[in-house]
Write a protein that binds this DNA or RNA. Sequence first.
DNA 1: CGGTATCCCACGCGATACTG
DNA 2: CAGTATCGCGTGGGATACCG
Lengths: 132, 132
Amino acid sequence: MIQRCDVKEVGGKSYRCFFELTMQVIGGKWKPVILYHLSQEKVLRFGALKKSLNGITQRMLTKQLRELEADRIVTRTVFNEVPPKVEYSLTELGESLIPIFLEMKKWGIRYEECIAGEVITGDTYESVDDPA
Amino acid sequence: MIQRCDVKEVGGKSYRCFFELTMQVIGGKWKPVILYHLSQEKVLRFGALKKSLNGITQRMLTKQLRELEADRIVTRTVFNEVPPKVEYSLTELGESLIPIFLEMKKWGIRYEECIAGEVITGDTYESVDDPA
DNA sequence: CGGTATCCCACGCGATACTG
DNA sequence: CAGTATCGCGTGGGATACCG
């Protein structure tokens, strides 16, 4: 029998299942792509990350990175140089997300094929409701 | 060298990596929990789903289910009865998401432990900045 | 270079009411 | 029971300007 899930809370996030909790950590408009790049490149400077995320504003990138840092997914390393230099990379906890990334990549490819295929097919219905 | 990802498009969603594409299909406030329940129960009536998602409005649930249906993740079966009866379940494509769910559940548990642990620990700092 | 500080808008999401 | 139809707000996200 299906039951109402209690709402739990951890690290300021409320969730009803672990699936949902994980989505709150890696979800949103930018985090998936940020994490994708970091998982590919190991370590990236702020500017490099910004260039690779075509279109993100500095404010947004900073905000996303701060959140990921608070969630212990990325580390932020500041070099006291002029000009300034800040590097980001995945923490151990962040790297433990990689199996998820791989599963999602596999599924994304499958989904793309599925949807792309469907546009063409259209079964063998005799044209229903097409007055043209 | 890191490069700008081109923005691709499929099924009305634009994305720069498959990870991001997948997130667009299963992300949002409600979809994770909806999918969680459907993956547990195989088939659920609209009302049962609504009861299990403590707090969702009818309008929202309908909207989320329609989107998942359009993305071929769930099927909608209408029974011509009085009172009406509509059942939802995962499609084959939807079921292929399950490996992702399992990875995310595993990670969510790990994350919870990690964050919960950190709140207590607080290293061995001599209480800094605590005038009480 | 790598950030804040303001200001602002779109839209995701919700509350409520009504219907076949 | 399983929906639409309206109305409306909060906030995720963006544009721009300035700072160490």
